[in-house]
Amino acid sequence: MINKIGKVTVYVNDQAQAKDFWLTKIGFVLKAEQPMGPNATWLEVGPSESEFTTLVLYPKADMLQQNPSAVSQPSVLFSTTDIDTAYEGMKNNGVEVGELMKMPYGSMFTFKDQDGNEYLLREDK
Rank of each mutant, 00 (worst) to 15 (best):
S48E: 14
K7R: 11
T24L: 06
D124K: 11
D84W: 10
S79C: 02
A18P: 00
F28W: 01
V12G: 00
S79M: 07
M63N: 03
V45M: 01
A18E: 03
D113Q: 05
G116C: 06
I26H: 02
D124V: 15
Y105S: 06
M101A: 11
D115C: 06
G27D: 12
A18F: 04
W22M: 03
R122L: 13
D84A: 14
T110S: 13
I26S: 05
G46L: 03
M101F: 06
K60G: 01
L43A: 00
Q65K: 15
A61I: 09
D84M: 09
Y58E: 05
R122D: 07
E88K: 15
S72I: 11
F109V: 09
D115E: 15
F78P: 01
K112Q: 14
Y105N: 11
M101R: 14
K112N: 12
V76W: 02
Q65F: 11
T81W: 14
E44Y: 03
E118P: 00
I2R: 02
M1C: 09
T53H: 04
D115S: 02
L77A: 09
F21L: 04
L30R: 09
I2Q: 13
N67D: 14
L57H: 03
P68K: 07
I83L: 08
N117G: 00
F109P: 02
E123P: 03
S72D: 13
W22E: 02
G37P: 05
M90F: 15
F52T: 06
M1E: 08
A61K: 10
M36V: 05
E123Q: 13
P35K: 12
A16N: 08
E33T: 05
G6N: 10
T53V: 11
T110C: 06
K125C: 09
V56S: 10
G6F: 10
M103Y: 08
F109N: 03
L121R: 05
D113T: 08
A32N: 12
E44I: 04
T110L: 00
I83K: 02
K112D: 03
K102R: 14
A18H: 00
V71M: 01
Q73V: 06
P59W: 01
I83C: 10
K125F: 10
V10I: 09
L43R: 01
P38H: 12
E33R: 13
V95G: 04
K19F: 05
G106F: 00
A86G: 07
T41H: 05
P74N: 03
E96T: 14
W42L: 01
T53K: 02
W42H: 08
A86M: 14
A16S: 15
